[in-house]
């Protein structure tokens, strides 16, 4: 019984991981991709770990496996949002642009002074390496 529950939890976790990867491919810019990646992969991986925990407790009677799985889940839960935050901040400071359909950019206004969206859309002073995402590329 509890074995079945553990397998279902692992299965649902895998599904969330898959959706997160799909989001990485489909969404337009680095920030939206991080959103999908962080949320889905965190919950998905935590569910896989929790399923492993249940499996270790109930099906195999191995406390070592259970404790380690639970610790891993806590680590993923604590570190994955921090990593996403670090990547997003680094990307913004390095000049990665928002998707052209973005409606507001308070951080850019505060970092570089007020610039209307029309002006931001044309990369004049940006290095060529910065990629400008468009709908067709997604």
């Amino acid at each position: 019984m509890s074995e079945t529950i553990a397998q279902w939890i692992i299965g649902v976790g895998l599904m969330f991981d898959l959706l997160g990867c799909l989001g990485l491919v489909r969404l337009p810019d680095v920030y939206n991709r991080l959103q999908a990646g962080t949320k889905c992969v965190t919950l998905g991986t935590c569910m896989i770990m929790f399923g492993t925990f249940l499996y270790g407790v109930a099906a195999l009677d191995r406390p070592q496996m259970a404790v380690q799985a639970l610790l891993c889940a806590v680590f993923v839960l604590l570190t994955s949002p921090v990593a996403a935050h670090a990547i997003a901040r680094g990307a913004y400071r390095a000049g990665a642009r928002l998707w052209e359909g973005s409606v507001i950019d308070r951080l850019g206004e505060d970092l570089h002074g007020v610039r209307p969206p029309a002006e931001r859309a044309e990369p004049a002073d940006q290095p060529a390496a910065v990629h400008h995402f468009t709908e067709s590329e997604s």
């Binding site: 969330f16 959706l19 997160g20 989001g23 489909r26 969404l27 939206n32 928002l98 973005s102 409606v103």
Partner: peptide, 16 residues
């Protein structure tokens, strides 16, 4: 996220 990713029109309106 699942809804937005699976929707064919990608219903997002992003911003900071």
């Amino acid at each position: 996220v699942a809804y937005r990713v699976l929707h064919p029109d990608l219903p997002i309106r992003p911003g900071i």
